[in-house]
């Protein structure tokens, strides 16, 4: 222990150590900031491109019409009351179904159940009054049987008049 030692030398020492740690921290931090950060705003710019590049799975119904497979049904739908109902609403979202169907022909089945129609057309007090709705028990009851809706209505163009 030298008597010449300044009484503040240890203070300097600890603060220099602290400064070194802080500078090291700042440098490490600067290396960890993503490259595209701040490109468009206070966020990682590439995140925007990643979001925009996401795959579309709920396909456009125009694709159904332009394909030879479903042109007929599409044209019927396009003239009928179900024009605003997109194909996927009843048939599901099948953006990649041509390829998938080729791989497994039994993969897709068509829902012909009454419940599918009733999702929209069951009488409900919350539904707008101008919308065509039926009370299931009152609508076409013959001998207690409930035939599928599509035995009378064409699902692609449902009006009967």
């Amino acid at each position: 222990m030298s008597k010449m030692e300044s009484p503040t030398s240890h203070v300097k020492r600890v603060f220099i150590l602290l400064l070194i740690i802080i500078i090291a921290g700042v440098i490490v931090r600067s290396m960890l900031i993503p490259e595209s950060f701040g490109k468009y705003g206070h966020y990682r710019g590439n995140a925007l491109q990643e979001e925009a590049a996401r795959e579309v799975t709920f396909s456009e119904q125009e694709k159904c019409s332009s394909s030879e497979c479903h042109e007929m049904n599409f044209l019927i739908k396009d003239k009928g009351k179900h024009k605003p109902v997109v194909c996927e609403n009843c048939h599901g979202a099948f953006a990649f179904h041509p390829e998938e169907k080729r791989a497994d022909p039994n993969k897709f089945t068509i829902n012909r159940d009454r419940s599918l129609c009733l999702t929209c057309h069951r009488k409900e007090p919350a539904r707008p009054k101008d919308f065509p709705m039926i009370v299931e028990l009152e609508h076409y009851v013959e001998g207690g049987e409930k035939p599928p809706c599509i035995s009378c209505h064409d699902p692609h163009s449902p009006s009967m008049g």
Binding site: V56, F58, E60, N89
Partner: peptide
């Protein structure tokens, strides 16, 4: 919800808007 940013930037409609049969 992203307002379907990936569809809008591709010139498509939002999935929910497209699915709505009543506009």
């Amino acid at each position: 919800c992203t307002w379907c940013y990936h569809r809008i930037t591709k010139g498509l409609q939002n999935a929910c808007v497209q699915a709505c049969p009543r506009e």
